[in-house]
């Protein structure tokens, strides 16, 4: 797995995710990266990567909306000027 630090360089994070607990994709997976968003500017996140942790918070066992809320809040908070993603290329189960 890889730790990717995304600086909040644009007004949006600019990723779409699918998956979460109790779906076919048990951990959130990046399905889109929008041009001009912070994630795109960072250059290290890629479509297909599975998100294991966000700012050290595990995505394991979290349903889709919970995972999405955690990512949205991590981007929104003014406590940090970046969001740390632990990602993997592999679709790890549980």
């Amino acid at each position: 797995s890889t730790l990717v630090r995304v600086a909040k360089s644009a007004g949006t994070l600019g990723i779409a995710i699918e998956g979460g607990a109790n779906t076919r994709q048990p951990l959130p997976r990046i399905v889109t990266i929008q041009r001009g968003g912070s994630a795109h500017n960072c250059g290290q996140l890629k479509v297909g990567q599975v998100i294991l942790e966000v700012n050290g918070v595990s995505m394991r066992g979290r349903e889709h909306r919970d995972a999405a809320r955690i990512i949205a809040e991590a981007f929104k908070t003014k406590e940090r000027d970046h969001v740390d993603f632990l990602v993997t290329e592999f679709n790890v189960a549980l």
Binding site: G14, A16, E18, T23, R24, Q25, T32, H64, A68
Partner: peptide
């Protein structure tokens, strides 16, 4: 395991 996973629903997609 494979058959069980196929019975799970697809996920919605959220833009962040």
């Amino acid at each position: 395991v494979r058959e069980k996973r196929l019975t799970l629903p697809p996920s919605e997609i959220t833009m962040l």
